[in-house]
Design a protein around this nucleic acid. Structure first.
Lengths: 113, 113
DNA sequence: TTGACATATGCCGTTATCGGCATATATTGG
DNA sequence: CCAATATATGCCGATAACGGCATATGTCAA
């Protein structure tokens, strides 16, 4: 068995740098495929395929607009990642926490005077 | 060309559910390979290989302890993900923000009386 | 309707992943 | 030193991802 399908969950969909770039490009709002192609200078089929993957996991939705198709970011779907990461937040900021505590201590030591 | 190497960046390393499970198992602290094998009921070579990948991207470090090898979570390496996700925080909470604003409005409307 | 523009799909070759199994490499205790 | 335990590695087969290219599909404009 190879790596679990890229279309199965958000983590796999996001593993590809190009797809992250596409999502980044959509932060500012809806965009047509062609606009993304121009922005990121990727081939049109490549962009379409990446959008397909992103669409399968619900990270983007699309609507027709004349002969264009506008893609829209669905940031809500990033929640699972956010929640997974949240578990590590504390460990991730351990060093900062220590500095923070130190500063707090200094402050308390200063206040009484 | 296939997906960019799993050993190149954190996003790819984390794409695998089993590897996320291993990291989860290490949240509580250092663990030997065997302990992880027991906890997650994966094969020993499988765990060792996953640890190897995680180690290459710096998500875990290890130290020898007799005939055991203790692996340790390096949560700091999750920062890049956290920072990438932060860009979407606002869009991710858009709906909650709207509810929040609504509640705030209700509150303000109520206060004057 | 025809042709130009916009996007999606299909096929192909290359490459990497992943799990299983067998086995190599420590390390310790007797 | 030898056997047992703990972990790492190497090889394999199956799978699928990815990009490129050609082409199908869809949509408007004249």
């Amino acid at each position: 068995m190879a790596r679990s399908s890229t279309t199965s969950d958000v983590f796999n969909a996001i593993a590809e740098a190009d797809r992250r770039a596409i999502l980044d490009a959509l932060i500012t709002g809806e965009k047509a495929v062609g606009a993304i192609v121009d922005d990121l200078s990727m081939s049109q089929p490549q962009v379409s395929k990446h959008l397909h993957v992103l669409s399968e996991v619900g990270l983007v939705t699309s609507r027709a607009d004349g002969r264009h198709r506008l893609y829209r970011l669905e940031a809500t779907r990033l929640r699972p990642m956010n929640e997974w990461l949240a578990k590590y937040e504390h460990a991730m900021n351990a060093r900062l926490d220590r500095i923070d505590n130190y500063l707090r201590e200094l402050q308390q030591r200063g206040e009484p005077q």
